[in-house]
Amino acid sequence: MTENHHFLVQQVGKGDKQALAALYRAYERPVYKFIVSRLNDPHEAADILHEVFMDIWRVAASFEGRSQVRTWIFGIAYRKVIDAHRKRSRVTVTDEVPETGDVAEAADAGYAAKQEAEHLRFCMGTLSDDHRSAVSLAFYEDMTCAEIAEIAGVPEGTIKSRLHHAKKLLLHCLSGRIKGRAVA
């Protein structure tokens, strides 16, 4: 599969539109999922997905094959979303882990039993883009730490740290929402 995608990128670099279409069909869904998880705006995500593949079309000839095609494409998408955030001048959301320390309660409260996508979407939305990206790549795409680090252009230790903080924030947020509902 990986070799096949390498071949497709090489073909795109030579101006093969059918190869671009094949690459689009292979990566459209995961890349769109990754983008929309970071922007919460399907229309803007569709525009950025389009830009990602236009970039692939324009720069495929310079792809040297040192990284996997998947990490290369997600890296383009990663940077595009950062640009979009900059354009929006979006004020971010919390990066601080609350000190209330009820992670244990969240875990013990049996979150496992509460399949609530709405709570999860809300809580993902409270994360910073760095945290959300790491969680998305780890859990939507099941990527290794090394792959995520390559996409984000940071050391593996930074990714581990981001995921650790994201986990605490998510569990804290979910705990709060579940408690809120229980009270209501």
Partner: peptide
Amino acid sequence: ERDALAVIRAEMQAEEFRTPGEFGLARL
């Protein structure tokens, strides 16, 4: 925590997304 993260991951993977699909490809 491992169990909670496993549920979060399962929830995320089960999420449905409506992608641009063939329209997006035509636009491209």
